[in-house]
Simulated assay, not measured.
Amino acid sequence: MPFVKIYIHFVWSTKNRFPYLNSLELREKVWNHIRNNSKEKGIYIDSINGYSDHCHCLISLGADQNIQKIMQLVKGESSYWINKNKLTKEKFEWQDEYFAVSVSESSVDRVRNYIKNQEIHHKKKAFQEEYDEFISKFDFHKQ
């Protein structure tokens, strides 16, 4: 049996960054559902949290898992569940895009803490501002 320990920090937003998840109670319900549903599918979620318009998730990949399949399962099923249970006034959708970055074992605790403190963090800085700062650190067009 292979031993694989690969952590990925995923971030994805709601469609057009609309604040569908506008209460702490609703967010906690959604994060708990994502965690429980993922466990049933063999996806190990180490940490999950977010804010009204996005989700952060630290996942440990299994030997037979890949980023695209995990995102398809997590985002697709959770949006279906949110709509089926009429948890939002409008039809809920996640943005098609997502962000995924590997996390070294030495940084796992720092990422867990960052994800855990999303409520506090986003009282100071909007998701778009945070995202733009992070992306500007990389020039994806250079070869």
Rank of each mutant, 00 (worst) to 15 (best):
S136E: 10
L87I: 06
L21F: 01
N83P: 08
V74I: 15
S104G: 15
I8E: 03
E93Q: 11
Q128P: 00
F99W: 14
E130V: 00
K89H: 12
V111N: 07
V30L: 05
I6A: 08
L73P: 00
T88D: 09
L26K: 06
C57P: 06
F92A: 12
I6D: 06
V111L: 13
K75W: 02
K5T: 12
N37H: 12
W12A: 05
V103Y: 10
Q128M: 05
V111P: 08
S60D: 12
Q72L: 15
S78N: 05
H141C: 01
Y7H: 15
H54D: 12
H141Y: 06
S38I: 09
L26P: 05
I70M: 10
Y51D: 11
L58T: 13
S107W: 02
E40R: 15
K89M: 08
V4I: 10
A126M: 00
Q68W: 03
I70L: 15
E105T: 14
E77C: 02
N117S: 08
V101D: 02
D53W: 03
K91A: 04
S52I: 04
N83K: 09
K125L: 09
C57F: 01
S38Q: 07
S102P: 13
D64P: 01
S136T: 02
N36H: 05
E93P: 02
C55E: 07
Q95C: 07
C57E: 13
M71C: 14
N85C: 07
E97H: 08
F92V: 08
I120G: 04
V111M: 13
E105C: 10
N83R: 07
K41S: 10
S47Q: 15
H122L: 04
L24C: 01
G42R: 11
V11K: 03
R110A: 14
D46E: 14
W94A: 02
K15Y: 14
E40Y: 02
I43C: 12
S52L: 03
N49C: 12
I59T: 11
H141G: 00
W12C: 04
F3S: 07
F18Q: 11
E90C: 02
Y7G: 08
E119K: 12
A126L: 00
E93F: 14
W12F: 15
S78R: 04
E77P: 02
K123Y: 01
N85T: 08
V4H: 09
M1F: 02
K5M: 10
S60A: 13
E129R: 03
P19D: 04
W31S: 04
E28A: 04
